[in-house]
Design a protein around this nucleic acid. Structure first.
Lengths: 144, 144
DNA sequence: TGCGATTGCATCGCGTGCGACTTATTTCTG
DNA sequence: CAGAAATAAGTCGCACGCGATGCAATCGCA
């Protein structure tokens, strides 16, 4: 007989599993584009605002440079982005969309619809998730 | 000027980032126990119900055998669980808690409180997340 | 101005996470 | 009951994801 699951089990299991489930949902959509799910998220950040530094992209997605550096290099190797040192601050590397990366956005237009259909969630529920996840992430203490 | 983010960006980014944020929140809690976050989740499944097959654990967490096999072997190497072939069905491997794994649960009692304090979410919001994430994961089509 | 502290990116090692494939066992079907 | 199909676990290669660490550029403050 299973015991009563306690609170952190609920939230941990569910967000963990939901994230993996979304990754699986996107995999067949991204395969024709030759992209992984994290690579898609990085491109999405750039489609919103082009020419951002590695650190800015990392802060947006909650990723360390040790994760982002090799990932972006793979995007560069496929000719989707360019990496250039910031002339104003030579420490920074500015990632910009190459032409091949820019035109790729058009092929992702139906993804939001697939997400709705693939999960069976309403737009209102999606927005509720958005609000709760943002609050949760923002609430986690960023130690200096 | 950033363009309007579309719907899938909201949900993808936020669940992705929230999952990473929870992992970071748990890391300092799990470090003294010598556990990774996925290892903790596997033990949590066993604390709920002991002696489950590898496949059952995988279905609960949404993990493939290729991920779970080496993870559980590491838990076995630390003496936290045992792996035994099911006598009734020799294809199955039953994972059970060893004594060291069983007593470890006591040292995780404060984690739910840390999750509440670390995220700043209320219990009601946590339960709302639980409900939405379960629905989302359940809704994703499991192809035969 | 100078030099220590900080910042931004990169490298390395290890632990996930998965698809494709293999092997062993069980079940299904004629 | 034999052979085919299905199922369970494991192996391999590759892509994350992070902490620890290194290095160069920049900042800050005496």
């Amino acid at each position: 007989m299973p015991r009563e699951p306690n609170l952190d089990a609920l939230v941990c299991f569910d967000i963990y599993s939901a994230n993996l489930a979304i990754g699986r949902l996107y995999k067949p959509l991204l395969e024709p584009l030759g992209l992984t799910y994290p690579q898609y998220l990085v491109l999405k950040v750039l489609w919103e605002t082009d020419a951002q530094s590695l650190g800015t992209i990392g802060r947006r997605l909650g990723l360390e440079s040790s994760t982002l550096t090799p990932l972006v290099k793979r995007l560069e190797a496929r000719g989707l982005v360019t990496r250039l040192r910031d002339t104003g601050d030579e420490r920074r590397v500015v990632v910009s969309l190459a032409e091949a990366g820019r035109v790729l956005e058009a092929r992702t237009e139906g993804f939001a619809r697939c997400l709705i259909e693939g999960t069976g969630m309403s737009v209102a529920e999606m927005e509720q998730i958005h609000r709760l996840m943002r609050k949760l992430t923002a609430g986690t203490v960023q130690q200096a």
